[in-house]
Simulated assay, not measured.
Amino acid sequence: MAAAATGTHGHGEQIPPGKPMSTEQHILDKGAEMLQSLTPIKQMNQHVCTFALYNHDMNRQIETHHYVTRVNQDFLQCAVYDSDNSNACLIGVEYIVSDRIFESLPKEEQKLWHSHAYEIKSGLWVNPRVPEMVVKKDLENFAKSYGKFWCTWQTDRGDKLPVGPPSLMMSPQAVNLGMVKPELIQKRDDRYNMSTDAIKRTRLEIAEPEWINPEADYWKQHGKCFEMHVEDVEMKKIAPFP
């Protein structure tokens, strides 16, 4: 019996327990890939690297890699990984909406979302290896957008499997509690051979949103967070067939 793989690999990802991939499984997967369309995955057309903070504990900050599918001009969906390595862990999902869509949401729903203006203006949100001039128009739109990010696998605390309920994540903000730790930014700058400060200076002309809805970034206004818990409830059974 093969030994279970444990520990970390690459840029901080966790290896789940389990047997190594067999040659037979590799061949099977390659054959399936050739025969199937995998259409939803092929719609991912951007890689965004940024940072996120746990809503219930903002001392926990992580680098995130979003693989973005643009459904339309007002709605995007992102598969979120903990690195851009081939063996990265899928740690969650983020939905991104335009300000127009966000304003149509109920206030209770808006509390679960965060604004992106600071992420964009501060240079924290980047498209690795893509020139700024290529993504400038997109960045202008993203600066007015809002996101809802659920983390389902907390690899930053060493979890080898996605255990427990999902955690709501927040966007960095220009206030002390919500600012990203400098060492995290420097680590990313070194890896991609870039300067977040220099990127920030190139974005001075990107307009600030005229208004950021205060229901977003709820913790800034109220010092409160949202934490998910699992509880037993009565099951809704299927009604008897006539």
Rank of each mutant, 00 (worst) to 15 (best):
G10D: 10
H11L: 08
G12E: 06
Q14V: 15
P16F: 11
T23G: 10
H26W: 13
M34G: 14
L35K: 12
T39A: 09
P40N: 06
K42F: 09
H47T: 04
C49M: 10
C49H: 01
T50Y: 04
R60D: 09
R60W: 05
E63D: 13
H66Y: 04
Q73I: 08
V80F: 00
Y81K: 11
Y81S: 06
L90M: 03
Y95P: 00
S98T: 11
D99W: 07
I101N: 00
P106G: 13
P106Y: 10
E108A: 13
E109N: 12
K111H: 05
L112A: 08
S115Y: 01
E119G: 01
N127E: 13
P128I: 08
E132Y: 01
K137R: 10
E140A: 13
N141Y: 08
N141G: 12
F142G: 01
W150K: 07
W150T: 09
T152S: 09
T152E: 09
Q154W: 02
Q154V: 12
L161Q: 09
V163D: 05
P165W: 03
P165R: 02
P165C: 14
P172I: 07
M179H: 08
V180H: 02
L184R: 02
L184Y: 04
I185Q: 00
I185K: 01
Q186R: 05
R188Y: 03
D190C: 02
R191L: 14
S195E: 08
D197L: 14
I199V: 12
I199Q: 02
R201C: 08
T202F: 02
T202V: 12
L204W: 01
E208I: 09
E210Q: 10
I212K: 00
H222N: 10
K224I: 15
H229R: 12
P240Q: 03
P242W: 02
